[in-house]
Nucleic acid binder design. Structure first.
Length: 445
RNA sequence: CGGGCUAUGGCGCAGUCUGGUAGCGCGUCCGUCUGGGGGACGGAAGGCCGCAGGUUCAAGUCCUGCUAGCCCGACCA
């Protein structure tokens, strides 16, 4: 993309409405525009990041054997009356009446709806196990929305629901989600630590929250620092293997790691003192096993191999897709702007032309642009008639992980400059070498 | 939902106390000179001063009511 043809309304100064760093940078980098409290338009740059995150979530869900679908944002109140949550949910649920006077609601989650779909079409144990998920906009009418997209009222979320014949099977689904979530966050350049959590209004026995450590996190967390050494890496996992998934769960949850809701001082005291940490964290996902809570109240049953009608065991599993955009920035930025991890960056590489209009510089930039594209990469070429300082400041703000700087001075010696946004280190090299290096970085993701 | 604060051009702000031609910086547009970390000069556009009512010869400014947004807390993914 050429910057002169793009829509990137960057702001030089900090908008007064934003207090935390991710919100400030998302506004300044032209990623979002607030519409009303907790509701945002996603401008092109923000939309790209949102979609990149969504794609990673999809890929990892499908890899784990989960099946994508899409349910509506607007749901009928009657479904929620059946589960009893229409009354329980309170003011956070946005209630709407349609023209016929029917009570509707903008869904804050989809347990009722998915259970309704399940009971209509699934009747036999032979259809299980089954895990369906979707990525859809949700609405929770927060009393006090804040922190930009991290606690909006409208938010984009992946929610998945597993249906299993037994508690044992459902716990495997739980473990499978935990493993797939570890992979998902790691691909986004995040370390998200699974922590034992409180089940809240969804209810249930087993639940873990995934938290990204960041100073601005809304939850206080306590953990054994040994857990931050754990990496999922490129290990091969057979998601059908109960044993393999169980092993990963044990590896990643055996160390002490809890939010303040479930924090236990006595248990924490058993962690060696030098490894005890308290910090702040941003919740970016949660997995639940809740048994037969919804299947019993809503009649989601199957016939087992003994001709008995039994309620299915369920769990639900969420990833906050829109919230992740903010969380990644909280975890990866400096005083100049955002630093995107390669996995989610809106463009793979920036091209800065230091002297727009100079025939050689222009030609070299065009050549770099095509060469990067021919490697399947998406460059952002700053072809504005701006001075160097302005171009650098924009690139630093929007956070592309790699930048190639092209100027007459370097071209005289046949070189351009390749700069890492994260480390700030620059290397001079031939244009071809710079392209090859960037291509290699992305090929190895 | 309690407490606090704010609302003036796209963004950041002054002007309100003490009523009298709506201003500054940044950004935007045009031109010239520039060209390795937000450059210089010259020109230009852009505002029912959040909304409604009131006081007054006169309201951005004073009064009343409302709305929206932000911050702290409680709450929450």
């Amino acid at each position: 993309m050429r910057l002169t043809r793009y829509f990137l309304p960057v702001l030089k100064e900090n908008p007064s409405e934003a207090s935390i760093v991710s919100h400030r940078y998302m506004l300044r980098a032209g990623m979002i525009k607030q519409s009303s409290a907790g509701i945002y338009s996603w401008l092109p740059l923000g939309f790209k990041v949102l979609k990149n995150i969504e794609n990673i979530v999809h890929e990892e869900q499908i890899r784990a054997g989960h099946i994508p679908m899409l349910m509506p944002t607007i749901q009928p109140a009657d479904l929620w009356r059946e589960s009893g949550r229409y009354e329980d949910y309170g003011e956070e649920m946005l209630r709407i009446k349609d023209r016929h006077g029917h009570d509707m609601l903008f869904g804050p989650t989809n347990e009722e709806m998915i259970t309704d779909i399940f009971r209509a079409h699934v009747g036999s144990y032979k259809d299980l196990p089954l895990t369906l998920y979707h990525i859809q906009w949700k609405f929770r009418d927060e009393r006090r929305p804040r922190f930009g997209v991290m606690r909006g009222r409208e938010f984009y979320m992946k929610d998945g629901y597993n249906f299993d014949l037994s508690k044992e099977d459902a716990l495997h689904a739980y473990n499978r989600h935990l493993v797939s979530y570890l992979r998902t966050y790691e691909r986004m350049g995040l370390q998200a630590i699974p922590m034992r959590a409180d089940s809240g209004p969804i209810g249930g026995d087993d639940t873990h929250e995934f938290l990204v450590l960041a100073d601005t996190g809304e939850s206080e967390v306590f953990y054994d620092s040994a857990i931050t050494d754990l990496k999922f890496g490129d290990r091969e996992i057979d998601y059908d293997s109960v044993e393999q998934c169980q092993n990963v769960l044990e590896e990643f949850t055996s160390r002490y790691a809890r939010t303040d809701e479930t924090h236990d001082e006595a248990a924490f005291a058993n962690v060696p003192e030098e490894r005890r940490r308290s910090a702040r964290g941003i919740e970016v996902g949660q997995i639940f096993y809740f048994g037969t809570k919804y299947s019993e109240s809503m009649g989601a049953t199957v016939i087992n191999d003994k001709q008995e009608q039994i309620p299915v065991h369920m769990g639900s599993h969420g990833i906050g897709v829109s919230r992740l955009v903010g969380a990644i920035i909280e975890a990866s930025h400096d005083d100049k702007g955002i630093i995107w991890p390669e996995g989610v960056t809106p463009f793979h590489c920036g091209i800065v032309n230091l002297k727009q209009g100079d025939a050689e510089a222009d030609a070299a930039c065009e050549a770099l642009y095509s060469a990067l594209e021919s490697h399947g990469l998406e460059p952002l070429y700053d072809d504005r008639n701006e001075r160097a300082g302005g171009k650098f400041a924009t690139m630093d703000l929007i956070g592309l992980p790699w930048r190639i700087t092209v100027g007459p001075r370097g071209l005289k010696n046949g070189v351009v400059e390749l700069t890492s946004r994260r480390t700030g280190e620059s290397q001079e090299m031939a244009p071809d070498a710079a392209v090859a290096r960037v291509a290699e970085i992305y090929a190895n993701l």
